[in-house]
Design a protein around this nucleic acid. Structure first.
Lengths: 204, 204
DNA sequence: ACCAATAAATGAATGACGTTCATTTATCTC
DNA sequence: GAGATAAATGAACGTCATTCATTTATTGGT
């Protein structure tokens, strides 16, 4: 039969669907409809919805910018990589629970990123044994920060309990004149600087 | 009618169910069964499954150990808090996507924790404006690390693609003689030290 | 002690959703 | 042109969370 479907097409359609309707809108039925096909047809090309998510993940990984590791000083390369990584996955937080636990085996894009990052660390003078743990720590921070970037501006509104949390409430208020001062970007930058400084000290 | 159910009982049953069957086993039907009640009865006490998750979350927050902030040096208090926080939520990662974005309003346990942590930062000499961003950064790291703690030991097995990722593969191997060397704990400790050092430098 | 109001539990029904499978349809190969 | 094969179909399943009309038990007022 004329192959209407393939994994690339499914991946692209899934990404478009996600960007338009979010992850709640990503159902096998909706995905099939956007491809002009019956839901069951998808199963000739992917074994499950989980596999669709893995395909999307790999695609996103290929968009993470790790180019700095071959051109910039280590600190700047890490910063560029981390911002790019967080920026992309902030709009795909439902994937994080998958990625964080997904073996890299047969994930070429993900492996390519790790290889480049590892090379950058080596070039910067890190002892080999420190590299993977450092990357893991940075990634943990990036993933957590990606969630954070989606928090509503009033997440720290202590409401009726403000009186029983005076120090916290005051610290929140100190960030700006009113509500709506969730410091996601500022926090990311501060924590990233701290990590870069701290991990950078491990260089030989 | 004799009130068989209440929110505390539902929360306790949910926690037990989660510990026995995991988050996949936490269905409204299973929860009702464990309470000897019809599923629809639950809706007299909670408005949705999401509310059950919020109740569980609040309960878990009350178990996070932030006691060090009133007794230990700041660095040690942060470490104790972070380890406790990560340890608890590592077994409840499906909640993280909820928490990270959930307003603290009407979450007394969560607010109590933030209040204590804020006080600890103040006592340690942090300028008020730096406190919330620092906490946010630490929490992001803790949440990410909680996911990480669940990664399979062979997550970094590059498999057939090992040849194309020599530096990465070698760095992974350097961690130990064989596979199964996922450095989740080591990475957590390293990154946490880096954050503590880096953020600690913000003190006045 | 009764009655009305109310809180709580029931069971049947609904509508998504992911997934399976027997069957049909179109294309490629010999 | 026949037969194998890859791909799409549509109906069906099982699992969920959730709703709702109804029943049942308890409470407070007189």
């Amino acid at each position: 039969m004329a192959a209407v479907l393939d994994q690339d097409g499914i991946t692209a359609a899934a990404l478009e669907l996600i960007s338009k309707k979010g992850y709640d809108g990503l159902t096998m039925a909706a995905l099939a409809r956007s491809l002009g096909v019956a839901p069951s047809a998808l199963y000739n090309h992917v074994s499950s919805k989980d596999e669709v998510l893995k395909l999307v993940e790999e695609d996103l990984m290929s968009k993470v910018d790790f180019g700095g590791f071959s051109t910039l000083p280590w600190e700047d390369a890490v910063r560029q990589w981390a911002y790019s990584y967080r920026g992309i996955f902030a709009r795909h937080t439902p994937l994080i629970s998958v990625i964080a636990v997904l073996p890299v085996t047969d994930a070429p894009q993900t492996l390519a990123m790790y290889e480049a990052v590892t090379e950058g660390f080596l070039r910067a003078g890190f002892p080999e044994k420190q590299i993977i743990p450092s990357i893991v720590a940075l990634e943990a921070y990036i993933f957590g920060a990606a969630f954070d970037a989606n928090a509503p501006a009033d997440i720290f509104d202590s409401g009726r309990l403000a009186d029983s949390t005076p120090h916290f409430t005051s610290a929140v208020r100190s960030l700006g004149p009113e509500r709506n001062n969730y410091p996601s970007d500022l926090a990311f930058s501060m924590g990233l600087d701290a990590l870069i400084t701290g991990l950078g000290a491990l260089r030989g």
